[in-house]
Write a protein that binds this DNA or RNA. Structure first.
Lengths: 116, 116
DNA sequence: TAAATATATTCCTATATTGGAATATGTCAA
DNA sequence: TTGACATATTCCAATATAGGAATATATTTA
């Protein structure tokens, strides 16, 4: 059939490079749409649209201030991603890595230069 | 214009729920395509196709074993995601959160019931 | 009230995928 | 060699976006 909706969880929200840029720009700061547009060199609708997606998954929070909208990051919403990813951390501990890399090389047949 | 290619970095690879399921199934294990298909209740092409995407971003590693292909997770490739997400961890520390939530409520004008 | 400013939304187009079915490829076993 | 099995790939249809342009919706200020 077809693609499913992909945007409406934090995993998908941060999959878009522009949205990551937006979140990086907002890390620690609270910024208006136009400030973001200026900082990133995008047009305003582009900023607004990506912000809406981030807002839908709660990665950003909006506050009205006169005719401005001030956005800030809500890092809490990143937690599910962090937790999911961290599950795998057990498998990348330095020592295991070194061993794993070695085994992988051997298995993959990445022969060292001792072949004429 | 149009959408960019979205699949070829770990962020996008794990944005797809099916691919996360695949990685979860492979966490700690090494499994063949058919074993995965059985475990997840998918048809074989579906498994293979998602595995290819994961392989392209190096999230899984494949090993040939007779006519089987054994896949395993390469957690190293998850590191960029983990690091990127962790940037934001500073903003979700419990105390700050509690304060932030409170301020947010106040700012948003979430008035308590003291209004008739 | 009208003009200006800030932001959101709608419309439209181009393209990226996902998924299933069918098929190709590779490998083992008789 | 032939058949069976495991997996990858191709083909196709349905749909989800991203992006730009134009427009709508506040809200402030003159």
């Amino acid at each position: 059939m077809a693609r499913k909706r992909t945007t409406y969880d934090p995993f998908n929200a941060i999959a878009e490079p522009n949205r990551r840029a937006l979140l990086e720009a907002l890390a620690g700061n609270s910024l208006t749409v136009s400030a973001l547009a200026l900082a990133l060199g995008w047009n305003q609708p582009k900023v607004s649209k990506h912000l809406q997606v981030l807002k839908e998954v709660d990665l950003v929070v909006e506050r009205k201030e006169g005719r401005f909208r001030v956005y800030r990051v809500n890092a809490q919403a990143m937690k599910p991603v962090q937790e999911w990813v961290t599950q795998f951390q057990a498998f990348w501990a330095p020592r295991l890595d070194a061993l794993g890399d070695y085994l992988n090389e051997v298995q993959t047949g990445e022969q060292t230069d001792d072949e004429p």
